[in-house]
Nucleic acid binder design. Structure first.
Length: 866
RNA sequence: GGGCGCUUAGCUCAGUUGGUUAGAGCGACUGGUUUACACCCAGUAGGUCAUAGGUUCGACUCCUAUAGCGCCCACCA
């Protein structure tokens, strides 16, 4: 006998172990089934699992389990990401607590510390991924720093270099002075800050700046060619007073760069520390003089300020400018966007440096004569890859079309070493150092997204034409958060189309972010984060999965809180108890004979069907198709909702209640329960698997069962449908007339005497002591009265029923019904409607009208009867 | 500055290509140990689907404005 309440904690770990040890998660590369592949977005090999991972695991596991049961060779490939900067920062922080920095430790010792940290973290994550019930293929687990993945990285780098897509250049880059490294454009975040804004006198013009300390070497003034104020200066060079005495400044007119409306309409440019100015300097072949170094300190060009931090210099320089009479005024609370590092929030310093870049505009043969950008846009435009929801197409196009060359070299230690060696001005690019003495490998590492961009294929053995690669690539779905659409999804498309000539995945499913009850982002500092592992401990993994998946639609954020998870814990318990009840019946009455036939045959022998049997089988057939279609169409929430409703409202509230009489049909109970378990298995794998094990007569594990298909046959849902409505009406009448639940009542029904077989059911479920059922009869006075379809209901309770109140209630309903009928009649009287609407719609409206009119007639009759 | 999303019952959210008398869970209220479940059962109340126009026979659903909230991108000399 099952326990009275389902205790997830008692079963989940053991079930997972059984699944894993049975190799149920393992994909067979030699199978001739069609493949269905998901590459798990690799969690960072730092820290622990959070809700972002949890929702990703829940959604992917549901898809994988569904397709696996549907007969696909399903591969869900797990792994972890070395997360270059994030991991290095984390370990640096730990070291800082010990009072050490990485330079003290040296590169190799530092890397060993990181490896140690990562190994520990990976263990934690692996366990937590298991806790969620993830049915991923652990035999194929990968890590971005595995040797073969590193090989793939070097291979792609070499090929791109050979194709001229990767080049080394002296260009302006985003520089984080704390990380001591470059950042990609999208790794820069912006925070709004209030800061003083300075207006400086620069010869005959006024220039505005928030960063006076970058202005030491400004020697060019840009104005608009049509600007009357400055026309006379254009093309001229003049001597002006500046920070360290007189300098020569040149005036250039540029219609695109200068805006007459903005500020004074004139600006100086700082080529070495501004992206816009760098491009201008290139355009006009101007000198690029660095002012600030890679530690955020002033260079000798700053004279007396050399060696100072940027902020210190700013403060002191402003004083000097004031003294020199060059400071016109200061806006103390100017609000502007400060660019900061997305990993450590340190202000980003744009500066010029020699780095490796990927050229996004160069057309190459490997992409059919197209550029990276063009091909990456094309695969979405042509529908080779579908993004769900599709509104992200536009966002993707905008990003891709405006993409600038991607800076891929990082000056941190943790990551893939750039596969380039130097010797006396010679350069070698490849997998290994060339033979001979004196070659030195590039000190830098690659942007972490470079290797994760290869994830769908590097994990399958590429560049070797492995059986895995051939069978499982391109992958089927990339399911991930929309917040990494650019970082990762876009870059996978870029790199995969180039390296493999194929797309990385057919669909991109973007889930939203999980927020707290107030809609705030969950964060450590707010302390509002929900720990998935704690929730699993409390409510079970199934409940957590459901709570994240139902009511959640792609691309939209959702709020999560304990009460919600508790609600789905209640659902798992409901399922458990329904099963407990059914199993109890089998224990009492014996199992149906042909259980294999019952759970597998397209047309099982279910014995003689009662009206209730027909009803539930019809509902079951409908929910099978609907849930399957919903999951196939990635409408996961809808599938969950459908099954929730079916189990609770149809199966438990009605079918099981109707089965409490003498009319139990063990075959139908067995079939319906077994089928429901299968349908729910992708969503709530643990509880269904446990019940499957407890259900007598099953063999093997539920995870390996096939997804159900509707059974053959037409089932009459109408008869019990009407009985259900009658029971509902009687219950309502009882409640409205405040009849004590314990008090049994007598009921008289007129009409549909053919349903008399359900008399016992009505009596039991509506608490009726005496039921008189006739085809017709005379009116009853002193009774409560109602009507359902063509059945009149009377509860003759002299004294207990307030006849006037009853009349008023019926009158109110008649009034509403009248309005409804009027609306329908008007609609059908409208020629345009009848002409233009589809015939089926018109017919449906006619049907509604005639039903409403029939009911109206009955209602009126009932009023008269009172 | 450009773009996107959201606005549906007190709260959290569904609502597939326009055709339901607009749904769910939680909460509220009334009442219940009816041989699986109080992590339960029965019943009730509660919404002019943000606002204003428009298209259509018909709009929660499509279009245009407006407002509030949120997000993304760009950028400010």
């Amino acid at each position: 006998m099952l326990d009275k309440a389902y205790d997830a904690k008692k079963y989940e770990d053991a079930i997972y172990k059984r699944w894993e040890e049975s190799d149920a998660f393992k994909a067979n590369v030699d199978s001739d089934k069609p493949s269905f592949t998901i590459s798990m977005p690799p969690p960072n090999a730092t820290g622990t699992l959070h809700l972002g991972h949890a929702i990703m695991l829940a959604l992917e596991d549901i898809l994988i389990r569904h397709r696996r049961m549907k007969g696909y060779e399903a591969l869900w490939l797990p792994g972890t990401d070395h997360a270059a900067i994030a991991t290095q920062n984390k370990v640096e922080k730990i070291l800082a607590e010990e009072g050490i920095d990485r330079e003290q430790l040296g590169r190799e010792s530092f890397l060993n510390r990181v490896r140690e940290y990562v190994a520990n973290s990976q263990d934690i994550i692996r366990n937590q991924v298991r806790k969620m019930g993830s049915s991923c293929d652990w035999s194929r687990e990968r890590y971005t720093l595995d040797d073969d993945l590193n090989y793939a990285v070097n291979e792609v780098f070499s090929r791109m270099h050979k194709d001229g897509l990767i080049y080394r250049g002296h260009r302006i880059v985003n520089w984080c002075t704390r990380c001591g490294s470059t950042l990609a454009d999208d790794e820069v975040e912006y925070v709004e800050v209030q800061a003083p804004f300075y207006y400086l006198k620069y010869g005959p013009v006024t220039i505005g700046t928030a960063r006076p300390e970058t202005k030491f070497a400004d020697k060019v003034v840009i104005v608009h060619p049509d600007d009357k104020r400055y026309k006379k200066y254009i093309g001229k060079e003049m001597e002006i007073d500046w920070i360290d005495g007189k300098i020569k400044a040149k005036f250039i007119a540029d219609a695109e760069a200068a805006d007459m409306e903005m500020g004074s309409g004139a600006m100086t440019i700082t080529p070495a520390h501004s992206f816009v100015d760098f491009d201008l300097a290139k355009k006009y072949k101007l000198e690029v003089l660095p002012i600030i170094d890679t530690e955020g300190k002033m260079l000798p060009i700053a004279g007396e300020f050399a060696g100072m931090d940027v902020l210190e210099c700013r403060e002191k320089l402003v004083k000097k400018l004031k003294k020199l009479g060059l400071l016109e005024r200061v806006d103390e609370n100017y609000s502007h966007n400060l660019s900061v590092c997305y990993r450590c929030n340190t202000p980003v310093e744009p500066l010029v440096s020699e780095q490796w870049f990927i050229d996004v505009n160069k057309k190459v043969k490997a992409l059919g004569g197209k550029s990276i950008k063009e091909r990456s846009v094309e695969v979405i435009k042509d529908g080779e890859i579908e993004i769900i929801p599709s509104r992200f197409d536009k966002i993707y196009f905008h990003w891709m079309e405006n993409l600038r060359d991607w800076c891929i070299s990082r000056q941190i230690w943790w990551g893939h070493r750039i596969p380039v060696w130097y010797k006396d001005g010679e350069i070698h690019v490849g997998h290994d150092a060339p033979k001979g003495q004196g070659w030195r490998q590039d000190d830098d590492t690659l942007d972490t997204w470079f290797s994760s961009a290869l994830w769908t294929f590097s994990t399958l053995g590429w560049p070797k034409e492995t059986p895995d690669f051939k069978k499982f690539h391109p992958t089927s779905v990339m399911e991930t958060g929309y917040d990494i659409l650019f970082f990762w999804v876009a870059r996978m498309i870029i790199m995969t189309t180039y390296a493999t000539g194929t797309i990385p995945f057919e669909k991109v499913y973007l889930h939203g972010l999980i927020r707290d009850k107030e809609g705030r982002k969950m964060s450590k500092s707010l302390g509002n984060g929900i720990d998935p592992i704690e929730m699993i401990d409390k409510f079970g993994a199934d409940a957590l999965r459901m709570s994240m998946v139902i009511g959640n639609t792609p691309g939209n954020d959702m709020r999560l809180y304990e009460e919600k998870i508790m609600g789905y814990r209640n659902f798992t318990n409901k399922l458990w108890n329904a099963s407990r009840f059914v199993i109890g019946i089998f224990e009492e009455k014996g199992l149906p004979a042909d259980r294999q036939g019952i759970t597998k045959a397209p047309k099982p022998d279910l014995g003689k069907l009662t009206a209730a049997d027909e009803w539930i089988l019809g509902k079951l057939n409908t929910v099978i198709s609907a849930a399957d279609e919903a999951l196939t169409g990635f409408r996961i929430s809808e599938a969950g909702q459908l099954l929730y409703d079916f189990l609770w409202n149809d199966f438990c509230d009605w079918y099981l209640e109707l089965s409490k009489g003498d009319k139990q049909n063990p075959a139908v109970l067995y079939h319906t329960l077994a089928t429901t378990l299968k349908l729910l298995h992708p969503i709530t794998p643990f509880v269904t698997e446990q019940i499957w094990a407890e259900l007598p007569g099953t063999s093997g594990m539920l995870i390996t069962e096939q997804y159900p298909e509707p059974i053959k046959g037409d089932f009459d849902a109408g008869s019990i449908g009407l009985v259900i409505e009658l029971i509902g009406a009687i219950r309502r009448m009882r409640a409205e007339n405040k009849i004590e639940p314990a008090q049994k009542i007598a009921v008289t029904l007129y009409g549909r005497k053919d349903l008399e077989g359900s008399k016992e059911d009505i009596m039991r479920l509506a608490r009726v002591s005496e039921l008189t059922w006739k085809d017709s009869g005379k009116k009853l006075s002193g009774a409560a009265a109602d009507v359902v379809k063509d059945v009149q209901i009377f509860i003759p309770l002299e004294g207990l029923v307030d006849t006037e109140k009853e009349k008023a209630r019926l009158q109110k309903e008649i009034e509403q019904l009248g309005k409804y009928i009027a609306g329908l009649s008007a609609k059908l009287a409208n020629k345009n409607f009848v002409q233009n609407a589809p015939a089926a719609v018109v017919e449906a409206e006619r049907q509604k009208l005639s039903e409403a009119e029939a009911r109206m007639k009955q209602m009126k009759g009932q009023v008269g009867n009172l």
